[in-house]
Design a protein around this nucleic acid. Structure first.
Lengths: 201, 201
DNA sequence: ACCGAGATTAAACTCAGAGTACAAACCTGT
DNA sequence: ACAGGTTTGTACTCTGAGTTTAATCTCGGT
């Protein structure tokens, strides 16, 4: 895949919506060409096919998430708070880019079969969060995880599905509202808090 | 879609693996015909196309989950324990049917665009769990949820992603192990438990 | 045994759309 | 002006989805 001119990349975002709505198969290359204003021949000059176009769009999304997550992870404060920041970061990117998100779910299969993307996802999310969990165990703000990797995966699942649900329905709720709900579930769980000093009623 | 003979249905499961591995687009109707031993013409006699075949396989999976989840939900004991049962139920079905699961992720987009499936998913999972959350708030074994619907969605995300990760990699771990990890996260969260009576070291 | 209705299948067909080929224009630096 | 890459229109090939047809098969009723 050749180095992509910025202008072309920009135009392509217009196609994300289309792909998100219809799914990749129902979207003809000619449709993508028309929607983005990039002629078919040019698309084939840069990409080997549809899939690679989708992959480009998704990698872009993952990079955005990776960036914001990285900032949240390496911030100040206890790990638990930074984790809440991670949640906000991911949800923020997702709600700002609903079309690629929908495309991502829609064609997750292809995405996971694209090894480059799996790697990007891991770098964007699992690894930073896994690290964060370990730090939380050290600074005492999070319980020690038996298996930080799979906890990171679960956290990703929780956040992602919450975000997707919102991206698929047309975001009624504020990002902060959703993020609070997610963070509360992840940090405190569903059990009633036992924080009140003496036994309650 | 005509009434499907049992024998034919059985043969079709053989194709799930294929679809899971390659994704639906990379799987030719003729491949499905060959893999399942059902001639192409017969497939078209019963289904209108590939998509409907996939839909059939997925609906089957969702039904299985719905069944086991329903049992778990309506069992004895406090809601919190029944929730753990739900987790076990879903993971159990997923790990017993890795191929359809992988197909489901792989072609989630199509799946969500198939309204019948969205409804099935909702009936199989969201509604029962939502009900369970309300019961938990009543019997005191779960904290009251502000928004039971979106909590049900998040729970589904957590369980599903955990299950998928395992279905995609070839299940090394026992279902119980995974279920315990998931249930622990969902019930207790990531914060250190404050359960020890007096302040710890 | 025979008949008719529906089930099952092979084989040949149509047709949309992905991807290719290629040459003409178009830059951009030298 | 020239060379090397970029951009694009146009016309092409070819794969594979879905259709059609018609030949068999199955089986309950007579």
């Amino acid at each position: 895949m050749r180095e992509l001119p910025v202008q072309l990349a920009t135009k392509l975002y217009g196609a994300a919506e289309l792909i998100a709505d219809q799914g990749l198969d129902n979207t003809k290359i000619d449709d993508i060409a028309e929607a983005s204003g990039v002629p078919k021949a040019t698309l084939y000059y840069y990409f080997t096919g549809k899939e690679e176009i989708l992959a480009f769009l998704l990698k872009d999304l993952l990079m955005a998430i990776a960036g914001d997550v990285a900032v949240a992870v390496s911030g100040e404060g206890p790990a638990s708070e930074r984790l809440a920041g991670v949640v906000r970061a991911q949800l923020g990117v997702m709600l700002r880019n609903p079309a690629p998100c929908r495309a991502l779910v829609g064609d997750l299969g292809r995405a996971t079969r694209l090894p480059e993307l799996a790697a990007a996802l891991s770098a964007a999310f699992y690894e930073p969060v896994e690290k964060l969990l370990r730090e939380g165990a050290e600074d005492g703000s999070l319980r020690p995880a038996e298996d930080p990797m799979s906890e990171a995966v679960m956290i990703f699942g929780t956040v992602t599905v919450a975000g997707l649900m919102e991206a698929i329905m047309g975001a009624h709720r504020e990002m902060e509202t959703i993020a609070n709900g997610v963070a509360r579930l992840l940090l405190d769980g569903l059990s009633p808090r036992t924080t009140d000093a003496t036994g309650a009623s």
